[in-house]
Design a protein around this nucleic acid. Sequence first.
DNA 1: TGTTCTATGCAATGGAAGTGCATTTTGGAA
DNA 2: TTCCAAAATGCACTTCCATTGCATAGAACA
Lengths: 144, 144
Amino acid sequence: MTQKIEKLLKDQGVRPTAMRILIYKYLLEKNVAVALTDIENAFAKSDRTTLYRSVKTFEEKGIVHQIEDGTGIKKYALCEDGCNCEIDTDLHLHFHCSTCNETVCLTEHKIPHINLPTGYTAENVNLVVKGICDKCSSQQKTIR
Amino acid sequence: MTQKIEKLLKDQGVRPTAMRILIYKYLLEKNVAVALTDIENAFAKSDRTTLYRSVKTFEEKGIVHQIEDGTGIKKYALCEDGCNCEIDTDLHLHFHCSTCNETVCLTEHKIPHINLPTGYTAENVNLVVKGICDKCSSQQKTIR
DNA sequence: TGTTCTATGCAATGGAAGTGCATTTTGGAA
DNA sequence: TTCCAAAATGCACTTCCATTGCATAGAACA
Ligand SMILES: [Mn+2]
Ligand SMILES: [Mn+2]
Ligand SMILES: [Zn+2]
Ligand SMILES: [Zn+2]
């Protein structure tokens, strides 16, 4: 496991330090997008700045992508294999649940092509749907 | 003008105070989405809290809609006539220019219908395209 | 006029992003 | 193996914006 991650990080041009490996593992085991604060809370002995800069490096090297889910808090999630964060091919829908407050990548749901008025050039597209996630809606059923 | 605004506010259940009318006028003359700080700077003698609560009231009464353009700063813009901020009919694309840093409503560009996995329910959709706006790209041309 | 609800202003809080700088760690050259 | 330069880390701070509590002023209404 750790071996693989080390290799993966190296391949992306990121030095596999102890903390970075831990962060990567954490992102891997979470199946939702995480905030910096989440990572901070996951490790008792961690400095926010280090985490901040590690994640930033990950982002620059294409290891994670940043998600703006509308909460005002930046979230991060691992990129898919072979992802280049390219518009039309890699960018996908994100879903933010207003009940559990979790944000997930719906990697199967790519962003539809958007027509823009003349003169406008798209560099990036952010599509976030807010509502109730599957877990929360099935809990609702269970309750009643 | 002021008369119309007063009526409009009343019709939406908002008392047309002096400040609120000013804010409304300001939003009306700006053709871009504005941040609270923008409004604050537009009026020398204004209290941020009053502006904050006024805009919040506007939002609750369906007079403005909030825009999360990914900058982390909340923006606001007047709703169209007859807008109920309803998904599929009223929600539209927003464009954020990375050059001039302005965010505009592209009210003609409604949000395409999004298919979600089973169990997910959509309550709101946020679609933001980032890139270069028409003004900025035409300036580019002029320069070279 | 007096009462009550609403709007406003001021002060303060809180959360998160981001930066400067000193120190430690690391990887590679010698 | 030893040493050095570059990279990573940790701590202290700053900044920016959203948001709230509470006291006061203002408007509507009986
Ligand atoms: Mn994602
Ligand atoms: Mn809009
Ligand atoms: Zn949920
Ligand atoms: Zn522009």
